[in-house]
Write a protein that binds this DNA or RNA. Structure first.
Length: 194
DNA sequence: GTTAAGATTCCG
DNA sequence: GGAATCTTAACG
């Protein structure tokens, strides 16, 4: 009900995913991440997160849902309390990874976005085949060791644009009841239908 | 040093 | 609706 279709796509379907044309493969660079999170977060939906395991096996995961956390003013963003050991990486230029531990059992995966000293991040809330942000990191083996890793230079994790442009839906961010109505109601969750 | 709370998930 | 589970950050 609250959801609205805000971004038009090219009718991507299960059948047309992962086109054979290799020329469409592209690793996202600094210029992609160094923009405002409200531009980057929705564009991440439909991109492919790729991990290289220690035995050199590549595994690709379709990003299906993200959320934007934007600046010190955003009471739902960890940076609302300023620069701390944990939030430090969010003050870097876009392209770094911000991971943190919550509820005593889950690692949350975020991509830092925006310019230097402009704390922002896109939470990776959904990956095709997994339920929830806590479950996907567990399945992919994401933990503290990924904190600060650079998505544009890392040999074990990066994001690819494979030419998909799914329709993007928006909604309110989840699990931030403490942030107050103004921030809680921002339509900063972005997702695609299965 | 102590403590409250959490960008979750599962069970009842 | 409530518990599990432990790191982070605020406070003393």
């Amino acid at each position: 009900m609250q959801e609205e279709k805000k971004y038009s796509g090219n009718g991507t379907s299960l059948k047309t995913r992962f086109p054979i044309d290799k020329s469409l493969e592209r690793k996202l660079d600094r210029s992609f991440f160094a923009r405002d999170v409200l531009k980057v977060a929705p564009e991440l939906v439909g991109k492919v997160l790729t991990l290289r395991s220690v035995d050199n096996i590549l595994k690709r995961y379709l990003i299906t849902e993200t959320e934007a956390y934007r600046g010190e003013a955003d009471l739902a963003c960890h940076a609302c309390r300023g620069r701390t050991q944990r939030t430090e990486i969010m003050y870097h230029e876009g392209g770094k990874i911000y991971v943190y531990f919550v509820y005593g059992m889950y690692w949350m995966l975020n991509f830092v976005t925006g310019e230097k000293d402009e704390p922002q991040a896109a939470l990776i809330r959904g990956i095709e085949g997994f339920n929830g942000p806590g479950k996907l990191t567990r399945a992919m083996g994401i933990d503290r060791s990924y904190y600060g890793e650079d998505l544009t230079t890392s040999a074990r994790i990066w994001v690819e644009d494979r030419g998909l442009s799914p329709d993007i839906l928006t909604g309110k961010r989840i699990g931030i009841e403490y942030a107050g109505a103004f921030w809680k109601n921002k339509p900063w969750r972005f997702y695609m239908l299965p």
